[in-house]
Design a protein around this nucleic acid. Structure first.
Lengths: 239, 239
DNA sequence: CTTGTAAATTCATATATATGAATAGATGAA
DNA sequence: TTCATCTATTCATATATATGAATTTACAAG
């Protein structure tokens, strides 16, 4: 299977992870039952459960007593966005709308190439997107994607991009986003950015750079989101 | 022990957690061996291990093959501070020095009372502290503590406060900090704050509000740290 | 069609046990 | 003293197994 020096439960985990990454086990569907898997792998239930538990811990699977174990659809509500807490008049959480304003092909600069693991100058798809709530722009986003994986995006009408991009990536390009890392910093708004965000130039803005990765940890998308620092809140627990 | 409807491993976990909170099992020391604990609780090893594993997961214990299982001393390097990455000329990480500049008793305002779970107007110990690296002020901190728990701090010479406060709390007041939650936001520097941080007034500053809690989750300390937003970086992983 | 019940499926909890690996402590030789 | 070695301790890994709880499915009764 893999490196025999590793404990059995880790090798099981790796194998199952590979199945998810390969799309063999699709998000939202159930994996085989414990009985089937123990038979297939030839291991004891305890060992299998331990492997599955690590995947549940990592948020890749969800177990449900009496129903089965399911591949979880990754949920980016857990990202920094959740801290905006924009609510409508009924007090409900609101997901900002997303609209692609600019779309073209370009060659990757140093930063983008590094983030996506490409050579400098490689062809990338570039998107510019605004995220709004009640017509007000909350975030301005720049997005870069490897053309070799995301070429279909170049032929689609920008108006046909859905509200959310990740399901769109999956349908159009067969690219599954499984995880991401985000880096947050503070900058000051340029004139152009200030206009877009309806704030004054020189006001502080939050810059979130996200590298989104597939289930096999390949970087697939590099995204820079810029928004008004004023309403921004972020909370973290330390143990 | 506790609520009999809960699974056994959870009741074990709760019991062990209580021992830590009570100081019965002190940070840095080893807990009894698996053999002793299974005998004491009258459970199987597997059940005990499962209980211990949840505590390890939560960062309260550390297991070491061949040595034993130890109560972990909470590590606040994991806090937002770690993202400053201040390094000296050798490339080593540097912990900022901490010096208490102001210390007095006052009555809690609304915000402080809420954070500490006290009545508004209750007596609190107030500290003001600067955190520096190479003589440069990185952060300015305001700290509020319940006088009933931290009265000894009022009689100590401010110069005798150590570089780190939490060990000092433990020695002087018998108050153990086990966890904390931090909330980050961006503001602009007042004239006074700008002077303290050696930046221009109106420049963006990072404000970190921390509520530090005991092992039993009682809020013990409320702290507001303010620093230059310029060098600030924060990174988060999403799954 | 709806409702209630029974059976089957599937994960959750718990025990018992065996072998291996890492560490610490004791012992003895150089 | 210093170093290597042996031994006991302690956690890590793995198996086998039994009972319980939640859910789904099938089916019969109304």
């Amino acid at each position: 299977m893999t490196d025999m020096r590793l404990p059995l439960y880790q090798r099981l985990r790796d194998d199952m992870l590979a199945r998810i990454a390969a799309g063999d086990w699709a998000p939202g569907t159930a994996i085989p039952t414990e009985a089937e898997l123990t038979k297939y792998y030839g291991v004891a239930v305890g060992t299998l459960r331990r492997a599955v538990e690590t995947l549940v811990q990592d948020g890749l699977m969800e177990r449900s007593q009496g129903r089965g174990t399911f591949i979880r659809r990754p949920n980016f509500d857990g990202s920094l966005f959740r801290f905006f807490r924009h609510v409508d008049s009924q007090g409900e959480r609101r997901v900002p709308t997303g609209r692609v304003m600019v779309r073209h092909e370009e060659s990757a600069g140093r930063r983008v190439a590094d983030a996506l693991g490409l050579e400098e100058g490689a062809s990338v798809v570039y998107l510019e997107r605004v995220r709004q709530i009640d017509g007000q722009t909350i975030f301005h986003e720049q997005i870069w994607l490897d053309t070799r994986r995301f070429a279909p995006l170049l032929t689609v009408d920008p108006a046909d991009f859905g509200n959310l991009l990740y399901p769109f990536y999956e349908q159009q390009c067969g690219q599954l986003i499984g995880a991401a890392e985000e880096t947050l910093s503070v900058a000051t708004a340029s004139q152009a950015m200030a206009d877009r965000l309806s704030i004054d130039p020189g006001q502080p803005v939050i810059v979130i750079e996200r590298i989104a990765k597939g289930y096999d940890a390949t970087p697939l998308e590099f995204r820079r989101s810029t928004g008004d620092a004023g309403p921004f809140r972020y909370r973290v627990d330390i143990t």
